[in-house]
Design a protein around this nucleic acid. Structure first.
Lengths: 247, 247
DNA sequence: TCAAAAGTGTTCTTATTACACCCATGG
DNA sequence: CCATGGGTGTAATAAGAACACTTTTGA
């Protein structure tokens, strides 16, 4: 019988890349570290896994303690194991990302959350540990995920306008989309319910409000389904003889 | 300062889903277990991670000890952490999958490899531990990967025919593809070099041999690139108003 | 009346699909 | 000469991309 003591026993953590969307900007929730190592740095919320937990349970716990939210989109992305990634010992971390609606919830008033703040993904500085790398991996995962499934709705409030939805896609894909083509495509999927309501109090023509049709989406998943978007190409009009899918 | 001893320390293993392709069949390399738990069961090759290794190093080591191969396609897929997944203690495993050319290499004659055998992915029984689940996850990853990047070439011998290539895609995607459309698409990508050689000794018209153009592929990666295939639909001719990409 | 964002169709181009017959070889 | 798999083209359909002006509101 194997004696486990002959092999590596490592501490392990989960780190959570929590995405939100606000003011036309893709954001990530970070915590200012109050202890060494990386004292004073911003870092991903994460914590050690308890003996009675599997990883997903731990990731959900971290998320709940910080935001008070359960039942949000959560997905394992990658496990980071560089030998020297933690100064005080061997620590392996499993990265999860989750998507939440910023607008609907205030952060919890816990000792952890008091140090937490939303940061624009596009303007981040040096984070603690290898968290820049972890964030990049999770952002990449989100980028392709948003093309395969309408996860974008997880980030918007229940009622939203088509322009808000388009801005979200543009923020995630880091590109610009054509307004008419975007609307044509997104409406043709039949995943939006027109609420018949309008924006109020805006200094321009008010936009229609929509909500996401989860029932229809389930039907789609069952019959096999796809979701793709193309960016506009104002420059570089030619040169694409190969498939355009996934670009 | 954190005392790691207050938290769970776990043993870590890597498990390797090694895909190969032979006789028109997608295969996976399994090892017959010679000890408890799951004595006598087939299981994925895997081993404990050493203290001086990161996970990828460990996965490469396992692969090398078994096959004698280095520099093969290897990618981390998912980390499995169910509390009771190992009877003798808390063991977390990180699944990797790799792609190798069966035809080019004999298995190593090591104590591990003597117990190893290729199995068709489509006809597997109950494996040890949670390895059926791990295999399924890795197979799914391979399925989408093969649509985004021409990884299929990692599984074929250096010289191959278009029909062999098509059969590989059909085995991975578990579908049938139209011969003419497949050839049109694959040749239009410009990733194949026509060797000007022919099959010999076959009881039918000999096929042209091709090789993969790695240089051209690198150029593609740099300019942003995509790779898609559609299955033939002999039944169910209608009903697809939504995007067809990725299906 | 101005600024700001909402909303709306058409044309062109490209990609995808469906589909059937002759060819070269070994046995 | 037969069985086996190799090899080839075209037409119809569907999806994607490009593109500009009018509308509605609050300030």
């Amino acid at each position: 019988m194997i004696n486990f003591d002959n092999y590596l026993k490592a501490s392990f953590t989960v780190d959570n890349v929590i995405f939100g969307f606000d003011e036309g900007d893709l954001k990530v929730l970070l915590i200012k570290r109050a202890e060494e190592p990386y004292f004073g740095y911003w870092a991903l919320p994460g914590y050690f896994v308890y003996p009675n937990e599997d990883l997903e349970t731990a990731a959900k716990r971290v998320l709940y303690e910080l935001t008070g939210l359960r039942n949000v989109y959560l997905e394992q992305v990658h496990t980071f194991s560089a030998i020297d990634r933690h100064q005080f010992g061997r620590v392996i971390t499993v990265a999860y990302f989750s998507l939440i609606k910023i607008s609907n919830y205030a952060l919890q008033v816990s000792s952890i959350a008091s140090q937490a703040q939303w940061h624009s993904v596009s303007t981040l500085g040096r984070l603690g540990f290898d968290h820049n790398e972890i964030l990049r991996e999770c952002f990449n995962r989100l980028k392709w995920l948003v093309r395969s499934r309408p996860v974008g709705f997880e980030l918007l409030p229940p009622k939203f306008t088509l322009t808000e939805l388009q801005h979200l896609y543009e923020a995630i894909l880091e590109t610009e989309l054509d307004k008419r083509n975007f609307r044509k495509k997104i409406l043709s999927m039949g995943l939006l319910i027109d609420l018949g309501e309008m924006q109020e109090g805006v200094a321009h023509r008010p936009a229609r409000l929509y909500m996401f049709d989860r029932v229809r989406y389930q039907e789609f998943l069952e019959e096999g389904f796809s979701f793709e978007l193309k960016e506009t190409r104002k420059k570089e009009p030619a040169k694409r003889k190969i498939s355009k899918n996934l670009i």
